[in-house]
Structure formats: C-alpha cells, structure tokens
C-alpha cells in the first residue's frame, strides 16, 4: 500500500499519460539499438525519472527492475572518506553525485570510470553498453562536470550516460554539446486533471473535476505533488467535495505567513522575526531558491491584488485605500485564498 504516486507510476513508454509524442520518439531512439548520451531536463514533477526508467525497461527488459542498493566507498586525495549510495541493476547504475557535496569530482572519476571500464560479458544477448544515470547534474561542481566530459567521450563504447537535471543553465556547454537534450515539460493542467481522475478511478474514488483542477493549480503543475496532495485530501476528507480545502504542505504555509509578515509591517523588530523564520525554513532544508521564489510570487500576487483593491477603494472608500497604502493591513483574505 504505497502512495498513489508510486503505485500508479507508468513503467513503460507506452503507458505514459502525456507527452506521448516524445515517448514515441524515445522509443524509436531506443529501438535503433543505440543512442547517444542523454540530457533530460525539465521542472521537477514533470516525469523525467519515470521516462528514464521506462526507457531503460525498453532497452533491457524487466531485469532493470531488480534494483539493489550499494554503497561505494572512496577516499579523496586529501584522505577524506566518502560514502555514496547507488542504485543499480545489472544493466544500469544510478548515482546522485551531489550527495557528497564538493567532492563529487571524485565520485565521477572513480565510480563512473570503474563502471564504464567494464564491458558487458555477454554482448550477444544484451546491449553492449551499460547506462549510467546521473541525477541532479545541475548541482555538480564545475570540476566534476569537467571530469565528466572526458569520461563521456572516452567510454562511449561501453556506456551511455543519462543526465537528469532541472535546468541546463548550470550544465557546462561542453557537456550539453555531447548529449542529446530532451526536455520534459511540466504537464498542463488538463493533463494533470486527467491523470488525477484516472488514479482516483483506479482507487475507486470519485474526484470532482473542480477539485482536480484546484489541486493541479495548487501543485503548480507538479505531477508528483499533485498526486500526493490529492491523496492527502483524500485522507483529510474522503467523500470529496467541490469546495474542499486543498491541503498545502506545512513549509508552504510557513513561507506564506512569513511573506505576509514582511508585507504587513516594516520595522527592525519585524526584520528580526522574519530572519528567525527564515532560519527556520532553512533548517528544514527548504532550498533557498524555493524560498525566494515563494516570496517573489507572493509579492507579485500581493501587488496585483493591491492594485485591484486600491482601484476599487478609490471609487468606494478612501479610508480603506489609505489603510492598504500603508501596508498595515494587507488583504490577507485574498492572500490566503490565492494560489501563487
């Protein structure tokens, strides 16, 4: 009884729910028998990993599902010991080099080399290359990326590397040029609604389309989050109602509150409070870019509503406008309701 998001994850390229064109493209690519290094990028929750796994299955068949955890130990030149966990099947190995932080270069050099250097024993029945899946490539240090680029060329005969990242902006051009870039865009709201409906149907639940839409919007087109939120909603209150409150994750609520505090009052005292809350967010490992994005979104939204509100009040009520312009009482209700 795992979560829906894992339970109903499509396993083959054929079963993919959206971006079907791309799926066929990938299928063709694989069926040709060979394919170049891939750089798969797209926002989180769009289905990158799902596609990679489907691709692998297409390549090697079901045996890629026999996964095992393995911990590799490395010693850096500075005698520091590193542990990195990998997930591997017979045909592929999946690593997240950024787990070891700034020492990822060592991982790239050692691990990938050792894996890539070994040829498949039996090339007749199988592909003559292995696949290395590297996660979070955009988090790799420049050093690691440079180490990677030579490896990619050198061992092209024995392995293919699939790089997964959110954004290519941090990937050096040398790597980009060596890979076939595949972008996996986030699903549209409609596609997400479809998926949600389908999942609920499989679970034997009835999901009102309004709620599905609301969840999709609230998840900001993150399929994974949408499914999880949907399940959370189900736990919250099963017979779904149309105007059901979508359960937001705690950190998001906290972030919103913080942003609201910033808008509400500007004083040294408030600065201290906000700083404290920021610390809190950071200690919960909320990535700073998420935090900043959250704030910016909030402020845009606030500015927007404030404009509308002040237009209204200009005609209706002067006092309200003055209130708003002072920023002392932001339209909190609107803020709470709003999706940003």
């Amino acid at each position: 009884m795992s979560l829906w998001v894992d339970k109903y994850r499509p396993t083959t390229l054929n079963k993919l729910d959206y971006h079907k064109d791309q799926a066929t493209l990938l299928k063709k690519l694989v069926n040709r028998g060979d394919f170049p290094h891939l750089l798969i990028h797209g926002p989180s929750g769009a289905g990158k990993k799902t596609r990679v796994m489907a691709l692998l299955r297409e390549l090697y068949g079901n045996s890629v599902d026999k996964l095992s955890n393995r911990v590799y130990n490395f010693v850096t030149p500075s005698k520091k010991k590193l542990d990195i966990m990998t997930i591997s099947s017979n045909y592929h190995i999946e690593v997240n080099p950024s787990d070891v932080g700034v020492q990822d270069r060592v991982v790239i050099q050692e691990l990938i080399k050792t894996v890539a250097e070994v040829n498949q024993l039996e090339t007749s029945s199988q592909r003559d290359f292995k696949v290395i899946v590297l996660n979070e490539v955009d988090r790799l240090t420049k050093d690691a990326q440079h180490a990677l680029r030579r490896t990619m060329e050198k061992y092209i005969s024995t392995c293919r590397i699939i790089l997964i990242c959110n954004s290519t902006s941090k990937v050096i051009p040398a790597i980009k040029s060596r890979c076939l870039g595949i972008r996996v865009p986030a699903p549209s709201i409609d596609q997400m609604c479809q998926v949600l409906q389908m999942v609920c149907k499989k679970e034997g639940l009835v999901l009102p389309s309004e709620l599905a839409k609301k969840i999709s919007e609230s998840s900001r087109r993150n399929m994974r989050r949408a499914l999880l939120m949907c399940e959370a909603c189900k736990v919250q209150q099963y017979p779904f109602s149309v105007d059901q409150e979508v359960v937001e994750p705690d950190w998001k609520l906290y972030l919103q509150e913080t942003a609201a505090m910033m808008v509400q009052q500007q004083s040294p005292q408030r600065l201290l409070e906000v700083r404290e809350r920021l610390y809190e967010l950071l200690t919960h490992c909320i990535p700073p870019d998420i935090i900043m994005k959250g704030f910016t979104n909030f402020f845009f939204f606030f500015f927007f509503t404030w404009l509308c509100f002040s237009e209204l009040s200009a005609t209706d009520n002067i006092t309200e406008m003055s209130q708003v312009s002072h920023g002392s009482t932001p339209p909190l209700i609107a803020l709470k309701r709003g999706h940003w």
Binding site: N222, R224, L228, P249, W251, C285
Partner: peptide, 9 residues
C-alpha cells in the same frame, strides 16, 4: 522533491 512533496504527505 522528497523533502518538499513526499514528506508532508
């Protein structure tokens, strides 16, 4: 993603 999405759920 695990932290942001999975954990609350």
């Amino acid at each position: 993603g695990f932290n942001l999405d999975y954990l609350p759920c």
